[in-house]
Design a binder for these strands. Structure first.
Length: 564
RNA sequence: CGCGGGGUAGAGCAGUCCGGUAGCUUGCCAGGCUCAUAACCUGGAGGUCGUGAGGUUCAAAUCCCACCCCCGCAACCA
């Protein structure tokens, strides 16, 4: 297997992630990274905070701290939350790192040398009282079309007309409220995307039917409309200063250096152990690497057009994305997620309510793969109660209790098997193959539905063999049944591992086992018979707890979920 | 006519590319079991597949056309 490079979209350092962000890129990428590692692949899983841009500058000013301190604080906060969700990044870096600066400059110089960078004079809004240029959306005024008096300079929220800041009547700064607004001419650099359009189109065409529809169709849409020269610099202080004569007081636009951050962060990782790690092995030897990107749909244009074009224009042999897992949005039944309005579930709050594995399972099982999906506490509670408690948790519990009661806390000896076991082996051989196939293809919801079927097959086996009866007449066969069931706990643990790592470890710990670094599927006839007889296990309390209807009501109130 | 996605049992979804008896989960009803977290297993009821007595076809959820409705995005808010 080739080396597996995995990246999750870099979260903006401002603002904390909510469930939509978790399911949009972090959790699916983590599940995939864990899955591939478990299969024995050499994986490098990269993420980090995206720190540049106007928003960081302004937010830092509001908190009265330097932008460097602000970003450090929030970077650490992000890292802590992701750790709480058990995201297994090999490195969680920063787009503002020196390493990223170095790579960004290298790429910029190559693009410039190859004639893909163009200098143009543009008109920008300047606010003398704020002492800075204003992004379009930071200029507010009266919409010339509908008269709405709080229209933003990029678009009127009331009539949805797309605007230019100069169109606004009585424009003022959204920061200071100052009405003293100037239009200044300023030089900026543009990436000449039209020159690369044909190459991009040919490349995207090779992804038809391979990438998720949403990724392919969004890329095609941009190409169909024709690419435009895209500005890669901004009049800001916070960012990488532009290494070109006459432009040193400007910085690169966040969308230029953020995707390059995947590479820069890889170098941060490599620099920690320079003798053993090489970032070039991952990014400049494309034939050795399979690269999978994860992101929400808003990120797709930048990862299918701008970033590939950026790499392509260097004429160096950069690794381009092989598979792009684009996700739709997870919405909240109570309306848009809003931290300030305390509406919706943010990642830090989520962990105070339930263990990470509850969220991980629900979010992956309900991932918005084909369309936007909705989070509601009702649905969450039903899934957790039914799938995790009744089907999986109860299976483990009934097997452990029954075995302990009749045989003590040891794995009973495995005797001759019957048609029941043969049927179980056949069912599971098929289901496990399906599960592997779906996980490999990143069809997460279908994979979870198959995983559930696998758990159900355990309960089904117990129901058919009725060990509580058999033990009275044929204790040896009852031992075989329960030994088989204990083996199932190990199987389930291995299959659960990418999704619910903590639970999987607990399940293995019950059997006094440790996760095997590499798990390879074997025929069930051998996999479900190989644990040594009479080895002890640890009876455990139920692994999951149910969520009561009262608790659901409390949560709905607390997070402002309204009735549908 | 801005762009994209969607409208399939009460709810949440699959099936649509490559037309051929409408599937899954949950909820509901009944039965089995009583080892287990009042859990588990089995069976059943429930859908004119958004609308058009539209087009193509022996056959349409699936292909074509028109229309309606919902969600998201609109390139300096990551």
């Amino acid at each position: 297997m080739k080396k597996q490079l995995i990246t999750s979209a870099l979260p903006c350092v401002n603002g904390l992630p909510h469930l939509g962000h978790m399911v949009g890129c972090f959790l699916p990428s983590d599940v995939y990274a864990r899955w591939l590692r478990q299969k024995g692949a050499e994986v490098l899983y990269i993420c980090g905070t995206d720190e540049h841009g106007t928003t960081s500058e302004i937010a830092a000013a509001k908190e009265g701290v330097s932008v460097e301190d602000y970003c450090q604080t929030y970077h650490d906060l992000h890292a802590k939350i992701y750790k709480g969700f058990n995201l297994s990044f090999d490195y969680f870096g920063r787009s503002s790192s020196d390493q990223n600066k170095e790579i960004t400059y290298r790429i910029f110089h190559a693009l410039d040398a190859n004639g893909f960078i163009k200098e143009k004079t543009t008109q920008q809004v300047y606010s003398p009282d704020d002492g800075r240029y204003l992004p379009d959306s930071y200029v507010i005024g009266t919409c010339p079309y509908c008269g709405y008096d709080r229209a933003k300079g990029d678009q009127c929220e009331n009539c949805t007309k797309v605007l230019d800041p100069v169109d606004l009547i009585n424009p003022k700064s959204a920061l200071s409220g100052s009405t003293h607004i100037e239009i200044r001419e300023t030089k900026h650099l543009f990436l000449e995307l039209p020159k690369l359009e044909k190459e991009l189109e040919e490349w995207i065409e090779t992804k038809k039917g391979i990438w998720p529809d949403i990724a392919y169709s969004i890329a095609k849409k941009w190409l169909k409309e024709g690419l435009q020269e895209r500005s890669i610099t901004r009049d800001l202080k916070w960012g990488f200063s532009v290494p070109k004569e006459g432009l040193e007081d400007k910085v690169f636009y966040v969308w230029f250096d953020a995707p390059i951050g995947y590479i820069g962060i890889t170098k941060q990782w490599a620099d920690e152990q320079p003798t053993e790690r090489s970032w070039e092995d991952w990014w400049l030897k494309p034939e050795d690497v399979t690269y999978t990107e994860f992101m929400g749909k808003d990120n797709i244009p930048f990862h299918t057009i701008s970033f590939p074009a950026t790499l392509c224009g260097t004429r160096e042999n950069w690794k381009q994305v092989d598979f792009l897992k684009g996700m739709n949005y997870l919405n909240f039944a109570g309306g848009k997620f809003s931290k300030s309005a305390h509406r919706g579930i943010f990642a830090d709050d989520a962990l105070t309510e339930f263990p990470a594995d509850y969220w991980r399972y629900w979010l992956i099982a309900n991932a918005p793969e084909t369309g936007d999906s909705m989070f509601s506490f009702e649905h969450f509670a039903t899934t957790i109660n039914k799938d995790l408690n009744d089907v999986l948790g109860n299976f483990i519990n009934r097997v452990l209790k029954m075995t302990t009661h009749h045989f003590g806390a040891v794995i009973p000896a495995m005797g001759p098997t019957t048609a029941h076991e043969t049927e179980l082996y056949q069912t599971l051989d098929t289901l496990v193959q399906n599960y592997i196939h779906l996980m490999d293809r990143l069809e997460l919801r279908k994979a979870m539905s198959t995983l559930r079927e696998i758990w159900v097959s355990g309960n089904n086996y117990i129901a058919k063999t009725e060990p509580w009866k058999v033990v009275k007449t044929d204790p040896a066969y009852a031992g075989t049944i329960l030994a088989t069931a204990l083996h199932l706990i190990r199987l389930f643990a291995e299959l659960n591992r990418p999704i619910m790592p903590e639970t999987a470890d607990k399940m293995l710990a019950i059997l006094n086992l440790k996760p095997e670094p590499v798990w390879t599927v074997k025929p069930m006839s051998s996999y479900l018979t190989e644990l040594p007889a009479h080895s002890s296990f640890n009876p455990s309390d139920p692994l999951f707890q149910k969520i009561s209807p009262e608790r659901v009501q409390e949560l709905k109130l607390k997070y402002k979920e309204v009735e549908a």
